[in-house]
Nucleic acid binder design. Structure first.
Length: 489
RNA sequence: GCGGAAGUAGCUCACCUGGUAGAGCGACAGCUUCCCAAGCUGUAGGUAGCGGGUUCGAGUCCCGUCUUCCGCUCCA
């Protein structure tokens, strides 16, 4: 059996070889941390999406979906905090490999000066820093650090790299005319889908006549210019999120947070994944917008990693959008507060967010499904690679295989195809031995294969072969559709 | 970003101290008509990630670059 590290490698190879995932623009050597989904990968991804979407919107009458644009008004990102909080110049110490925010580093030094009683010097330093920061003068800032002999607290050296600005957001120009101030034309590719929901909060609430508590779900692409993006599709620069913002009455966030934690884990377990593979990781250090947060982590071959986040976002986002847009983000709650005997009245709702990485979920499903089996008998060595996808997620549901390509068997098989293909994804194959064809289907995770043989002509039955057990049973032609639908819906 | 390893056919890999690239599997076509891969025949596919250098000659040595994996770092 492969070790875990090897297993990860094996999964990557398998994804490439069987048409699940390719490096983006591979003929040009690929693009770092960007991947394309191939013929089976896109099917699997779509099935995961549908499963999530349906479980959110169909199973919860108070959750509706939207599909917001990737481009958003630039002020959105000021309100969300993305512009201010993630634009900091950074500097690395070459000896300790420690990375510092430039302002933190200099402020830290100024504090030391103050302790030494050199108050004026410290004040001058901070003033110089502010001036240089305002001008984005990185050369000047670096000089300032060197001139003051500011050292890394770990290595104790002043062996610094150049100052670089890391901005997690991709930007591009908007419109075909260029203004003198290029900031005017600058739009960002959204770094998260959540803001598309927040800016539409009132639209959906009013037109959908939604009553709190209610949720808005969305699936869509987001883009982050990660400093390092690695580990296959685990951290990509372009990725897809499936998230739901649940709007609630202030003060009820604790219970709803717990509710969604439990609900989301239930969803994961409903796919048949072993419970031990999951764990919650509570955030100690909270983001600027949250009052509680946790990750649902899954044990990938590369260890326990975050697949989904559940955040209690308070009213941070709506409040800020209200402030920046000057539009009231209030909800009038007619329900009676038992304490006062009066309606709850106007308030800005609190928000519980569940946000799952679709690509990570894909990797989760793939890791969980990928199995190398030793089927050797004393007489013969044998093995297979099988993807044990939950049938409802499998890219291909059914393979229709004539045992031989003569005696009218292909014709019967074609009829089965015609009967089934409008209901679920089917695959027809008459080349090679039947065993080989079964194994090929195992490799892409097809849960069912039916084989048309001579007996089919006599009694209208076929064998249906189950992927996981490799067992076969004889069933009437008329039963095929029902059997497949039953386990894939 | 730092450190380590790697990049040869679709996949896994070989080519030892430099002498103009091989295997297995896979794919395709045909034979076989066989209910669980590795039976037969045939075919296609690589100039060795890319660029440069050393050399009479480089996949093999050197430099650069891109990509991937591992560790550290980062991850609102």
């Amino acid at each position: 059996m492969a070790t875990d590290s090897n297993k990860f490698q094996a999964i990557i190879s398998h994804c490439k070889e069987y048409g699940f995932i390719f490096p983006s623009s591979e003929i040009y050597d690929g693009l770092q941390a960007v991947y394309d989904y191939g013929q089976w990968g896109s099917e699997l991804k779509k099935n995961i999406k549908d499963y999530w979407w349906n479980s959110m919107t169909r199973m919860n009458e108070n959750i509706v979906g939207i599909d917001a644009a990737i481009f958003m008004h630039p002020t959105t990102w000021k309100a969300s905090g993305h512009v201010d909080n993630f634009n900091d110049p950074m500097i690395d110490n070459k000896d300790s490999k420690k990375r510092y925010r430039v302002d933190h580093l200099i402020e830290g030094h100024a504090e030391l000066m103050e302790k030494d009683g050199r108050l004026d010097e410290a004040k001058a330093l901070l003033e110089d820093m502010d001036k240089l920061l305002a001008k984005d003068d990185f050369e000047g800032l670096r000089k300032l650090i060197l001139d003051h002999g500011i050292k890394c607290s770990i290595s104790g050296t002043a062996n610094w790299t150049d100052i670089r600005q890391f901005n997690l957001m991709f930007s591009t120009e908007f419109g075909s005319t260029v203004s003198a101030d290029d900031e005017d034309n600058k739009v960002y590719l959204r770094p998260e889908t959540a803001q598309g929901i927040f800016v539409n909060f009132l639209n959906v609430q009013k037109t959908g006549r939604m009553k709190i508590p209610f949720g808005i779900a969305q699936i869509g692409k987001a883009f982050r210019n990660e400093i390092v993006a690695r580990q296959f599709i685990f951290r990509m620069r372009e990725f897809e999120q499936m998230e739901m913002q649940f709007f609630i009455r202030p003060g009820t966030q604790k219970e709803w947070y717990e509710y969604w934690k439990a609900e989301r884990l239930k969803w994961h377990l409903s796919l048949g994944t072993a419970k031990e593979k999951y764990r919650f990781h509570d955030h100690i250090k909270l983001a600027h917008y949250a009052d509680a947060a946790c990750d649902i982590e899954f044990e990938f071959p590369i260890g326990f990693k975050e697949v989904e986040g559940i955040h209690s976002r308070t009213d941070f986002d709506l409040k800020n959008h209200q402030e920046y847009s000057k539009k009231k983000m209030q909800y009038f709650d007619n329900d009676i507060d038992e304490k006062t005997g009066k309606p709850y009245g106007n308030y800005i709702p609190y928000v519980i967010e569940t946000s799952i990485g679709l690509d990570r979920m894909f990797l989760l499903v793939m890791s969980n499904a990928y199995t190398e089996e030793d089927l050797s008998t004393p007489e013969k060595q044998d093995s297979r690679v099988v993807l044990r996808f939950p049938p409802k997620l499998a890219p291909m549901k059914l393979a229709v295989l004539p045992l031989v390509k003569k005696d009218g068997l292909p014709e019967i098989a074609r009829k089965i195809m015609d009967d089934c293909k409008s209901h679920f994804r089917c695959f027809y194959e008459e080349k090679d031995t039947i065993g080989k064809r079964y194994r090929r289907m195992d490799a892409i995770g097809t849960p069912f294969c039916v084989t048309v043989d001579q007996q089919t002509k006599e009694d209208n039955t076929v064998t249906i072969r189950h992927r996981d057990s490799m067992q076969q049973e004889r069933v009437p032609l008329t039963e095929i559709k029902r059997i497949v639908l039953e386990s894939t819906n």
